[in-house]
């Protein structure tokens, strides 16, 4: 078994990679992909704590709650990507670009 702290560090690293991607990119699809990486890091963290709990308390519901939340995060991520990509397609149809700085219609 890996050590919990190492797994948590991996999750933290993936999350920070996602933060960097969101902050540094201007292509909307790249921003969405970085967001997905952040959600994935959260999933790793949830599964780690789920496994940690299962080693301390032998109850099925408590031990698998983290995995259940992981499934919820996956569902929310799928819904989010569906909506986000639809918005990107709509923006591209109007502006002919997927750049975040092109969406300034609400400015001023």
């Amino acid at each position: 078994m890996p050590e919990p702290k190492v797994v948590l560090f991996l999750a933290a690293f993936l999350f920070c990679c996602g933060v960097y991607g969101v902050l540094s990119r201007r292509h909307l699809i790249m921003i969405l992909m970085s967001l997905e990486l952040m959600l994935n890091a959260i999933n790793i963290m949830l599964v780690t704590f789920s496994r940690h709990w299962a080693g301390k308390n032998h109850d099925m519901l408590g031990a698998h709650a983290g995995q259940f939340f992981t499934l919820m995060v996956m569902a929310v991520a799928a819904a989010e990507v569906g909506i986000g990509l639809a918005i990107i397609v709509a923006l591209y149809r109007r502006k002919h670009t997927a750049d975040a700085d092109a969406a300034t219609d609400l400015k001023n």
Partner: peptide, 10 residues
Amino acid sequence: VLMFTDTRTD
């Protein structure tokens, strides 16, 4: 969506 849109605007 990458195929639908222009990826060169990065």
